[in-house]
Design a protein around this nucleic acid. Structure first.
Length: 857
RNA sequence: GCGGACGUGGCGAAAUGGUAGACGCAGCAGACUUAAAAUCUGCUCCUCAGCCGAGGGUGCGGGUUCGAGUCCCACCGUCCGCACCA
């Protein structure tokens, strides 16, 4: 019995595909296009099996759509800028560029060994100046169109590393690498005006009907629209006024304080003459930003001694505080506190002895007896009281009336605010795209002239000192001002790496163009028909890309708003974790079973098994891709990644699972290389009467074709695999004695060729080899997708279930679409049915054609 | 706290409101083999029963329906996202 030689086979067909440049595509305006894209990887080192699940899915889609006749664009590239390269530079003394280059070479080879149908002629790496020069130009165009600007912003500052940290780099209030407590600092940073598109970005989510519902929800929540009002509080005895934002203008008569964020300009101003306040603000800014800190932090305030005048009643005064729980980044950075109807305000009021005035009476409550205890009444259900002209109104009515009154008095206006903030793109990092700006002491901020682009990174940098290597490079930043010719300095910040990934999908449309992209190519290929990636990018990358596409359109690059028509978010690949007796993480291959079946580590001592978690280097629960491809081949790995779990759910990688996939690969191989009966030559036509078993096989085959197509369309890959396995089971269940007679061999050939075509997108190398062994010309990769004949897919004989009082009592074999009355009569004569009816006539009989007969006794 | 998803055999799972457990993993028994591997065959939701069969079963409790894993209500649990958002 021959075993499938995947090593030779996979190399052979990869060579054939490459030599024929099969997957290199060009724009063909007359052909239907299909753009499949998997989120491009960061070249972090070596791939493990968990990394390739989404590429396997993308490749399946690409090959399936090709077979359906689409002109398919399926490119691959590298999101090549980022921190790990700098960390490696520090730890291993390698240059980030060299480290990145080597990783790309390794990972490219790994992807090629998997046999993915990429158009490698379009490969890009974002760290290449030929890529990032275009985004420097884009940035300058954004600047000219008011979509990029510089402002002071509060950032997470790591005082040891001298750099800004992204929110996700702050863990428990400390820098993720230095361990230093992160501070809030005011810094000048570049921002992209994503908020110019807030309404559009929010509204267009509704039309992204091929996106997962939860991603759309996450984006909606992130943009976070809330309707309310800005309300002006004048300060007694001073010229200043405080503007607050509220969604509860209806509760203004319950106001008992006004609070400013510690970073509010007025708070800063007051602190200049109030050392106590200055100290309080300093404390607030040193407080961490992590969830844990926030959750445990107690609400604290500092009474400024000033008083705010109530906008509806100039006689009423409320104290002005600076409070640690008021965010500068949201609304106006100031709030009014209504303790009766907001839990935070209530805690604050109790702590500082402020009055709690209920103004919304819950339905059915007694106005005389209603009081607030430990819990604020936050439901927006009830009627207003204690509220002058708002008394008796509903919450909604009071919001409207209060808003109108504020506007009439000039004390505020109704407005909508969003949680979404502009995108800060400055990073104090070396391994990123330089921001093409020159700071001139005379002319100020001067864009680098277009003919001087790209601004490239200097190669001779040192990572010995903390902070940004670009900033302490001896010469790089010193330049002449393009405007006045005087001495000036380059901007030493680089872009956030989300900048590169916000337009790479456009670059793929014409990857070698001297412009960022060719308009016609983009018009042809975009939008991406099917985008595939992890849900961890549900907000940031996907939102930035949606914004970028709009911003580029506004700057005249494009005529497009949504880049991704279809999105699929795949689940993670998980694996059991192991620790040695000493508590160290162990790689799965370090764990083995001893004679008594216990799991033991390299030290021969028992291993502690932990929970099954996402594969990650830190926990060592990774299975290397090379090892799997060496042992089982790419097709086996691909099959396993597609077959065991629904694609959107997590997949648990197990040794037995991959073994099972390997068995099936060999089974398929044996079916075609040693067929049960001798096959007729290719092209044999099925004619004449078929034996019932053979006829059945043919019908199963057509049904399988229909079902697999449907499953692939709907991303139910695990089901598609199960269907194909059912078909192979059906083939093997026909006794050879029957299969060898009449048209049997021709039907077998038909079935084997069909299986070959169906597994083509999943196991492309095996499919090519099967095709060849079956004596067929050409490549599976060039064959059309099989089409089911509805006549032949139809079931002629159906099994109908018979229920009595809702319980299954028997089944009935009937011809398809049999007369209902006949089915009913037959059902009522079943012995089991007669027994349950006990001679009485049925009260009711329901016949669902071809499905079920339900009898009510 | 807010928002969302999910809960089915020993395990991964499948099931347009219509025979729950397809397909696979694991296990058991058998065949082939000197033996092992590979391969093949059969069995495997639970309880009672020699067999025929009967009863129960999709996290828990109700409801709608001839019929509910699927729809509705309430609860329990797990996971994910956001979160001092005014």
């Amino acid at each position: 019995m021959s075993r499938y030689n995947f090593r030779e086979t996979e190399e052979k067909w990869q060579r054939v595909w490459r030599e024929r440049r099969l997957f290199e595509v060009s724009t063909k305006p007359t052909t239907r296009k299909y753009y499949v894209l998997e989120m491009f990887p960061y070249p972090s080192g070596k791939l493990h099996v968990g990394h390739v699940r989404n590429y396997t899915m993308g490749d399946l889609v690409a090959r399936y759509r090709r077979a359906q006749g689409f002109n398919v664009l399926h490119p691959m590239g590298w999101d090549a800028f980022g921190l790990p390269a700098e960390n490696a530079a520090m730890a291993e003394k390698v240059h980030p560029a060299a480290w990145t280059r080597e990783n790309i070479a390794t990972m490219r080879a790994q992807l090629q060994r998997m046999g993915f149908a990429y158009d490698w002629s379009r490969e890009i790496a974002t760290c290449h100046p030929e890529y990032y020069r275009h985004e420097q130009k884009m940035f300058l165009d954004f600047l000219a169109n008011g979509l990029a600007y510089r402002k002071e912003a509060w950032v997470n500052w790591d005082p040891v590393e001298n750099t800004v940290l992204a929110n996700e780099q702050v863990i428990d209030g400390r820098g993720w690498r230095s361990g230093a407590i992160v501070e809030k600092r005011l810094l000048s940073q570049w921002f992209l005006r994503i908020t110019a598109f807030t309404d559009e970005l929010l509204e267009a989510i509704q039309r992204l009907d091929r996106w997962p519902e939860r991603v759309r929800l996450m984006q909606e929540n992130w943009i976070g629209r809330s309707e309310g009002a800005r309300v002006v509080f004048e300060l007694a005895g001073r010229d200043e006024r405080v503007e607050v934002f509220t969604t509860r203008q209806d509760t203004l008569f319950g106001a008992s304080f006004v609070a400013l964020s510690p970073n509010h300009p007025l708070a800063q101003k007051l602190a200049a003459t109030d050392p106590g306040l200055a100290a309080f603000i300093g404390e607030c800014n040193r407080m961490g930003t992590s969830e844990a800190v926030i959750e445990t932090a107690e609400k604290r305030g500092y009474a400024t001694g000033l008083e705010a005048i109530h906008p509806f009643d100039r006689q009423r005064r409320v104290p002005l505080y600076v409070a640690n729980f008021v965010l500068m980044e949201y609304g106006t950075g100031a709030i009014f506190g209504c303790p009766a109807h907001d839990q935070r305000d209530l805690e604050f009021a109790r702590k500082y002895g402020l009055p709690v005035i209920p103004v919304v009476l819950p339905p059915g409550a007694d106005p005389a007896g209603f009081a607030i205890g430990d819990e604020a009444y936050v439901e927006q259900d009830g009627t207003l009281f204690n509220s002058s002209f708002l008394d008796g109104l509903t919450v909604a009515g009071a919001k409207r009336a209060a808003g109108e009154r504020l506007e009439a008095l000039g004390q505020g206006q109704r407005t909508t605010v969003f949680r979404l903030r502009d995108w800060g793109v400055s990073r104090q990092r070396y391994w990123g795209c330089p921001i093409p700006i020159i700071h001139c002491p005379v002319c100020g901020i001067v864009p680098v002239p277009e003919h001087d682009l790209p601004v490239t990174l200097p190669e001779d940098v040192s990572f010995d000192k903390p902070g940004n290597p670009l900033a302490h490079h001896p010469s790089w930043k010193h330049v002449r001002c393009p405007q006045c010719g005087g001495g000036a300095e380059r901007e030493t910040d680089t872009f956030d790496t989300f900048f590169e990934s916000s337009w790479y999908f456009l670059r793929f449309c014409s990857a070698r163009d001297s412009h960022a992209f060719d308009r016609e190519a983009v018009a042809y290929w975009m939008p991406v028909d099917q985008y595939i990636g992890g849900v961890e990018h549900a907000v940031l990358h996907l939102l930035y890309s949606r914004f970028f596409t709009r911003a580029l359109s506004r700057c005249g690059y494009l005529d497009l708003d949504e880049p991704f028509a279809g999105l699929f978010t795949q689940g993670m690949v998980c694996h059991q974790t192991y620790r040695s007796a000493a508590g160290e993480w162990l790689f799965p291959e370090e764990v083995e079973r001893d004679d008594s079946g216990r799991l033991i580590g390299p030290d021969r001592r028992p291993v502690v098994t932990g929970r099954t978690e996402k594969m990650s280097k830190s926990k060592k629960n990774v299975v290397g891709l090379d090892a799997i491809v060496d042992t089982y081949g790419a097709d086996t790995a691909r099959l396993y990644l597609l077959s065991d779990s629904p694609p959107e759910r997590d997949l648990e990688w197990t040794e037995t699972g991959i073994e099972g996939a390997w068995r099936y690969v060999n089974r398929l191989w044996r079916m075609v290389s040693e067929p049960a009966v001798a096959l007729p030559p290719p092209g044999a036509v099925v004619t004449g009467e078929l034996a019932p078993e053979v006829d059945m096989l043919r019908r199963v085959m057509h049904r399988t074709v229909a079902a697999v197509g449907d499953d692939l369309d709907k991303f139910r890959f695990n089901r598609a695999v199960a269907r194909i396995r059912e078909l192979t089971n059906a083939i093997e269940e026909v006794p050879p004695a029957v299969l060898g007679t009449g048209a049997g061999p021709a039907v077998l050939r038909e079935a084997l060729e069909t299986v070959t075509l169906l597994v083509g997108p999943m196991m492309p190398h095996l499919a090519e080899e099967m095709w060849q062994v079956l004596g067929r010309e050409g490549l599976v990769a060039e064959q059309a997708w099989p089409v089911a004949d509805p006549e032949l897919a139809r079931q002629e004989q159906v099994t109908i279930a018979v229920q009595v009082n809702g319980k299954l009592r028997g089944t009935l074999e009937c011809p398809r679409d049999a007369e209902q009355s006949m089915v009913e009569t037959a059902a009522l004569q079943l012995p089991q049915v007669l027994r349950w009816l006990e001679g009485r006539p049925p009260r009711k009989v329901i016949v669902v054609p071809n499905r079920i007969v339900s009898i009510v006794a």
